[in-house]
Design a binder for these strands. Structure first.
Length: 833
RNA sequence: GCGGACGUGGCGGAAUCGGUAGACGCUGGGGACUUAAAAUCCUCUGCCAUCGGCGUGCGGGUUCGAGUCCCGCCGUCCGCACCA
């Protein structure tokens, strides 16, 4: 009697079995080859969303597959538990951030378990736990002692909504990455991590990351932004000097002005005594930051009245304050070569400055430059004394050599990358373990006093930092002199927390951040999976942190993640009501708004987001269809790096497939259905075993899914035989990584011992991968006319003869004699007439 | 503006090395079973058509042969952006 697969019952049962048997606990002392599979840990926002389901399903399939192929797999899970939403909840709901976070963790953990992920929960960690962040404080102090941490007064990006500082990486189009508020510039004393010390290493290291997407490597490369050039000084008419940086030292004789940023000391000094200059500086700061504004913004300058002496005696140049020069890059000052730089060209055109050609543009070699825009291409130097006749690259080298020989400048490398400002004026983060003493200055908190724990009794009734307002917490005695001192009341950027959690997963000693031997045994992470939105921020910080750990001698590891995969988003149609309100999918039916019966406008397919109300909560879907159907759907159709559109039809299709599997498994459990062999099915089975393995290794889950459908189709069509029973038995293991609950249920019912989770991946019989017959395409002049089934390995002559004997070929030739016959053995014949 | 990715049926997509385009899934049509429905099964489903022709964003090119390689456009998406 055919039964139906009861997903709800099976899910619960097998999840409990795995839990009790500790099936997925990684053994540190295992003799098997190790495999570290990791998905980016979630922020405990409240509940799991579809993006999590997709991310963790992919990692889970790989982790389970690796177990089946004989690996000791480390597949842990934890919580990126510090962050702003907890404080917002505290303000809105009057609940302590810690309590809110811990409740969310409990709820989300239950949801992850409900999906049957093969996770080692014994290694679970939360970054908000003092047993985690205390070790982070100790690492911070190690970095401090090694000179990788420093404090400086600097202009910072201030988010007026979140009331905190943002790192450069967290400012997008001039707005805070979380709040979307326009970022302001403020002067604050901040802690910085010296990521620029590793700029070159981080850039070079990208070359070793062969299993990272090119896109991500390129984004990091651009972010680090290395450029090489010449740094040199101009003497000024007031006796002072100004240092500039250029990547085009070859064009030095084309210089017609010097420009400094509005924040440059020269501009600041002038503004202090000249109200007009001050007004100009102020105006520069107001400029918009959006793409459109920048593109259309006019180049503006203010003539300081100073002149700069050309280092090679090519006259005196006027010095301007200019709105297009950035203080953050290079030296905050440039020399302008209008003929060969577009910005300089626009500036010179506006202020009537000379535009002198120094690089020949084809035929033109005379100094008079009358083009519509600057010439920035390659060429030969002209009007440049000793550089005349040299190519651009050669001339650069010659100028740098001469500057160094004569002592007025030196070759220099400049990076776009800035040091990582980590101070945040927030409560819910890792306290910075530094004490400020009037007598001793900055004093690190002694190791035995770690962790510096967050106080529990804090209030969120006013904006700003509760640690700053706390009556007692910040008042301490100086560890050095015993006098009154103050704790630093800032906390670390939460990206610090996620910069080493993958190391803590490998070992969790109480007295230190990690056990070096265990860490070096498990790391690097072989396959890391997460969203592409972390391509720069998290992935760059984690790479830096790992190198910093190596620098202070704590670990011998350069790159934390050798394999990276960035998965696409889960999307859904959007719906708008007649009056323009966004509608949730469950409010819509048959093109109408259910509540009002009015027609609904179907909008673009977009990333699921609360604001557009196009989210689908996984929880009720898992309860309705079971974990396996949801997992199967997540893996089907869309390539994992692309977006996946959630659809009701899709999940129903997945559910149907699970039931189809069950009918096969169930029939087999009733007893052997046939005897005798089925060579074609044997071959199909072994081809599927090989190709699904290859597809899973390559994370091409959609292709693996398609091949499994083909196998199931073939089995269903095959007549009863021993081969067919064998194929169904093997199918249980082939689908086990993707739909583990039904696989366990079937494994038990057919009487195989133990758990399918512990079973080995089916062995491939290589002999069965080879076909003995092939279908050969028969073309005439490149057009397909027929196909022939021929024995594999037939000689060229025989294949050609078979093709020429074909009557469809004869008809297509229309009496013409073949001029040439192309034979690709076992593939095709092309008769050319 | 710079850098990158992508463009294949009604839809998601497959085609791993230049060699039978459209695997697999979804949707849809027809049929079987059923009193009926659901479920399930069978079958068809790129376009036009009678032979046959046309088809991988558009226009060229290389080749016996191009979704795949080259040149030029168009479009969509992503990243960066006054970077000296």
């Amino acid at each position: 009697m055919a039964s139906r697969f009861n997903a709800l019952k099976a899910d619960t049962h097998w999840q409990q079995v795995w839990d009790e048997a500790q099936t997925f606990a990684a053994r540190d002392d295992s003799p098997r080859p190790r495999s570290y599979v990791l998905e980016m840990f979630p922020y405990p926002s409240g509940k799991i969303h579809m993006g999590h389901v997709r991310n963790y399903t992919m990692g889970d399939v790989l982790a389970r597959f690796r177990r089946m192929t004989g690996h000791e797999v480390l597949h842990p899970m934890g919580w990126d538990a510090f962050g702003m939403p907890a404080e917002n909840a505290a303000m809105e709901k009057k609940v302590h951030p810690g309590e809110w976070t811990r409740q969310n963790i409990a709820a989300m953990k239950a949801q992850l378990k409900r999906l049957g992920f093969a996770l080692d929960w014994s290694r679970e960690l939360a970054t908000c736990d003092p047993s985690y962040y205390g070790h982070e404080q100790s690492l911070f102090l190690d970095f401090y002692r090694a000179g990788l941490v420093y404090r400086k007064e600097s202009a910072v990006n201030w988010d007026p909504v979140d009331m905190t500082v943002l790192a450069n990486e967290q400012v997008i189009d001039g707005r805070g990455w979380r709040s979307g508020a326009l970022v302001e510039k403020r002067k604050l004393s901040q802690w910085f991590l010296r990521i620029t010390r590793f700029a070159d290493e981080l850039l070079e290291g990208l070359g070793s990351l062969a299993h990272w997407p090119d896109k991500v490597r390129l984004m990091q490369e651009n972010w680090i932004g290395k450029s090489q050039g010449l740094q040199f000084r101009f003497g000024l008419s007031d006796g002072d000097s100004v240092e500039v940086f250029t990547t085009r030292p070859d064009t030095i004789f084309g210089a017609s002005f010097v420009a400094v940023a509005a924040d440059h000391p020269i501009a600041q000094a002038l503004a202090a005594r000249d109200p007009a200059a001050a007004a100009f500086v102020e105006r520069c700061k107001q400029g918009g930051t959006t793409a459109a504004e920048l593109e259309t913004q006019e180049k503006l300058g203010y003539d300081t009245g100073l002149t700069a002496a050309h280092p090679l005696g090519a006259g005196d140049l006027p010095v301007y304050i200019a709105n297009f020069v950035l203080m953050d890059y290079g030296t905050g000052a440039v020399f302008g070569v209008p003929a060969h730089d577009q910005r300089d060209f626009e500036f010179a055109s506006k202020y009537g400055l000379p535009i002198r050609r120094v690089v020949a543009d084809g035929e033109r070699t005379d100094p008079a430059f009358d083009g519509e825009e600057a010439y920035t291409g390659p060429g030969t130097l002209v009007n440049s004394r000793f550089l005349d006749g040299l190519a651009v690259e050669e001339a650069k080298r010659v100028v740098i050599e001469r500057a160094e020989r004569e002592g007025w400048g030196q070759g220099s490398t400049v990076y776009r990358l800035r040091d990582w400002g980590v101070s945040r004026q927030r409560y819910w983060g890792t306290p910075i373990p530094i004490i400020h003493c009037a007598a001793c200055g900055e004093v690190p908190v002694p190791r035995e006093q770690l962790p510096v724990a967050l106080p529990e009794d804090v209030s969120f009734d006013v904006p700003g930092n509760p640690l700053e307002r706390h009556p007692t917490w910040k008042h301490v005695t100086c560890p050095q002199c015993g006098g009154d001192a103050l704790r630093d009341t800032d906390t670390l950027d939460t990206f610090a927390d996620s910069s080493w959690y993958f190391i803590r997963f490998a070992s969790q000693p109480e007295d230190r951040p990690f056990d070096r031997a265990q860490a070096e045994r498990w790391l690097p992470v072989g396959q890391y999976i997460g969203g592409v939105e972390h391509a720069i921020l998290h992935l760059l910080y984690a790479r830096f942190w790992t190198r910093a750990l190596r620098h202070v001698g704590l670990i011998d590891l350069a790159e934390p993640f050798t394999g990276l995969f960035t998965q696409g988003m889960v999307t859904h149609e959007t719906y708008k009501a007649a009056d323009g309100r966004w509608l949730a999918p469950e409010e819509v039916g048959g093109g109408l708004e259910l509540a009002s019966g009015l027609p609904v406008t179907v909008g673009r397919v977009e990333k699921m987001s609360k604001s557009k109300k196009n989210t689908v909560d996984p929880a009720p879907i898992v309860d309705q269809y079971g974990a396996d159907a949801v997992r199967w759907f997540m893996l089907s159709d869309s390539p994992p790096e692309r977006d996946l559109e959630w659809s009701e039809n899709g999940i129903e299709g997945a559910w149907r497939f699970v039931q189809r599997l069950w009918r096969l498994f169930d029939a087999l459990a009733e007893g052997p259905a046939g005897t005798g062999g089925d060579a074609a099915l044997d071959r199909k089975l072994h081809q599927t075993i090989a190709s699904v393995a290859a597809d899973v290794e390559a994370l091409s889950f959609n292709k693996a899914v398609a091949k499994l459908y083909e196998l199931v189709n073939a089995i269903e069509k095959a007549a009863p035989s021993a081969s067919r029973d064998t194929a169904v038995r093997a199918l249980v293991r082939l689908v086990a990584p993707m739909v583990p609950h039904i696989a366990e249920e079937a494994w038990a019912r057919v009487g195989a011992g133990g758990l399918v989770a512990d079973a080995p991946w089916p062995a491939v019989d290589a002999a069965l991968l080879v076909e003995d017959e092939v279908t050969v395409a028969i073309q005439v002049n490149g057009k397909l006319r027929d196909t022939l089934t021929l024995p594999k390995g037939l000689s060229r002559e025989d294949v050609e003869a078979a093709a020429l004997a074909n009557d469809k070929v004869a008809r297509a030739l229309e009496g013409r004699a073949p001029r040439k016959v192309i034979v690709v053995p076992d593939r095709l014949v092309n008769v050319v007439a």
